[in-house]
């Protein structure tokens, strides 16, 4: 039992910290795009690197934020029935869902993205547009990292659900 509590708390702490840092990227995105607008329309020039940085930041937000969003339970559910379930029934849905859907899917994404990243690293892949950003493998790695964080939070969701089902945890504020 103790193990499940430790892993849940660890996941929460990691994803809270990552979520905090990632949320600053949203402000950075606003600033970078506004800067691009300013240079393009006022100074009459614009760099390909800045334009690429924009979608790099965008990708960071949704991938790194996925685990954090799960911690907040903000991933949309069809709650027609779910909202009427008892806490134990909800916990059962979350336990089975995590073990059968979420965790295997995370493993799948991580496993398949590794060769994709290694390949990019191996060939020193850069942006195909002149003046674009180098080191494509770094952004590609974020797929694995994001789904790794999601996996971790999925473990927490499964653990908490298990504790709820075992009756040692009445309040389940994560599901």
């Amino acid at each position: 039992m103790k193990f499940f509590i430790i892993i849940s708390n660890f996941a929460d702490r990691v994803n809270s910290a990552v979520g905090y840092l990632t949320s600053w990227i949203t402000t950075l995105l606003v600033v970078v795009v506004s800067y691009d607008v300013f240079t393009r329309y006022v100074l009459k020039n614009s760099s390909v690197a800045v334009q690429e940085l924009e979608w790099h930041l965008f990708a960071l937000i949704f991938l790194l934020g996925a685990g954090y969003t799960l911690k907040l339970d903000n991933h949309v559910r069809v709650d027609v029935l779910y909202s009427r379930f008892t806490p134990k029934a909800k916990a059962l849905v979350n336990l089975v869902g995590s073990l059968v859907f979420l965790l295997p899917f995370c493993v799948l994404v991580i496993k398949t993205s590794v060769p994709f990243i290694i390949n990019s690293y191996h060939f020193h892949e850069v942006s195909p547009d002149p003046g674009g950003l180098p080191n494509r493998w770094m952004l590609k790695s974020v797929i694995s990292i994001g789904f790794g964080l999601l996996f971790l939070q999925g473990l927490a969701l499964a653990s908490r659900s298990l504790l709820t089902l075992a009756g040692s945890r009445q309040e389940d504020n994560n599901g």
Binding site: H75, V76, R77, L81, K90, V93, G97, L102, F105, L108
Partner: peptide
């Protein structure tokens, strides 16, 4: 059917696809 249980949509999509 799986969506109706209320597990998050994104992961139900991913998991059902994987299986």
């Amino acid at each position: 059917a799986m969506l109706m249980f209320g597990f998050p949509v994104a992961f139900t999509l991913g998991g059902v696809s994987l299986i």
